[in-house]
């Protein structure tokens, strides 16, 4: 029994001649425990799909069953409660509340659940420890780095023990090292049983997923199971095949191309990993050298 089941789900914006089809009769079943990477160019409907699955948006047509329960029948209050208890969001732009400190931000979903202050702060602190931010509890979000903010956001997404984590380009605003940390976190969550849905432009990140879904013009054009740690072949090609609309897409295309190059020499996965490691060490080195200068 799939935890998420979409049947002929469409989303239209505008009306008359100005109607745009954001989702075009999408059918998608996701089993509990899957790690699904959703790929596709800008405007292909990835985010709209995430918003509908995450109960932030309603489909114009079609049926969406969450844990075999038709979502259309839920009242707004029940939808909010489902968002609160069953779904954790991780956004590209983090979306922490700037007026609250990290601890309060993480504890906020518990506020809406009606958990007592002491209990909810304790729980938030535990989660911050889990994402490695135990010493940043009382920082305001603007005093943290992007990677730290995203880790806090993940802690917030986890605070209500949701079955489903929806991450919409979680690494889109992060440098590669922070991306790595965030991806490892998501991967770890997946291992402990969470269903993870992740939108990404970066084909490299599909290596963490065990299923890749490709979208174009509001439709799912390809759906592929992959082994963890592998970048599916199509992920690399997709970026080149589909027309690009933004600079971001171009960049993603370039990175896809770069991934294709070392393929001739052997296994790409290991290669990229070592490349990553190199990058990491390079940055570390840089930090070291600047430190030396300061001294």
């Amino acid at each position: 029994m799939p935890i998420i089941s979409l049947k002929d789900v469409s989303k239209l914006y505008g009306f008359g001649d100005a109607t745009t089809v954001a989702l075009d009769e999408v059918n998608l079943d996701i089993e509990a425990g899957e790690f699904v990477a959703v790929m596709g160019p800008s405007g292909s409907g990835k985010t709209t799909l995430m918003n509908i699955i995450g109960l932030l948006d309603r489909p114009t047509h079609g049926q969406y069953k969450l844990s075999n329960r038709a979502v259309e029948k839920l009242r707004p209050g029940q939808r909010a409660k489902a968002r609160r208890d069953r779904i954790g969001f991780v956004f590209q732009s983090f979306n922490l509340l700037p007026k609250l400190n990290v601890l309060d931000n993480v504890a906020l979903p518990l506020v809406y659940r009606g958990v007592r202050p002491v209990k909810r702060l304790k729980r938030a602190a535990d989660l911050l420890e889990r994402v490695g931010l135990e010493d940043r509890q009382y920082f305001m979000p603007n005093a943290l780095s992007g990677g730290q903010i995203q880790r806090a956001a993940i802690a917030r997404a986890l605070v209500n023990d949701p079955q489903i984590i929806i991450a919409d380009e979680p690494t889109g605003n992060l440098d590669s090292i922070s991306s790595l940390v965030v991806m490892e976190l998501l991967s770890e969550l997946n291992k402990t049983g969470n269903t993870v849905l992740m939108v990404t432009h970066n084909p490299e990140l599909t290596r963490y997923a065990d299923r890749a879904v490709y979208m174009h013009d509001g439709a799912i054009v390809h759906d592929q199971k992959t082994a963890k740690g592998q970048i599916p072949q199509l992920a690399k090609k997709t970026m080149q095949l589909f027309p690009r609309r933004s600079e971001e897409d171009d960049l993603a295309g370039v990175s896809a191309m770069m991934e294709l190059l070392p393929q001739k020499d052997g296994s790409k996965a290991k290669k990229t990993k070592s490349k990553k490691a190199k990058k990491k060490s390079r940055v570390k080195h840089k930090v070291k050298s600047t430190k030396d200068k300061d001294v």
Partner: peptide
């Protein structure tokens, strides 16, 4: 408005 959006996304009901 954005704050309201965030709060709703993480599970605030209309009443809250």
């Amino acid at each position: 408005t954005h704050e309201i959006g965030i709060r709703k996304a993480i599970g605030a009901t209309n009443r809250q």
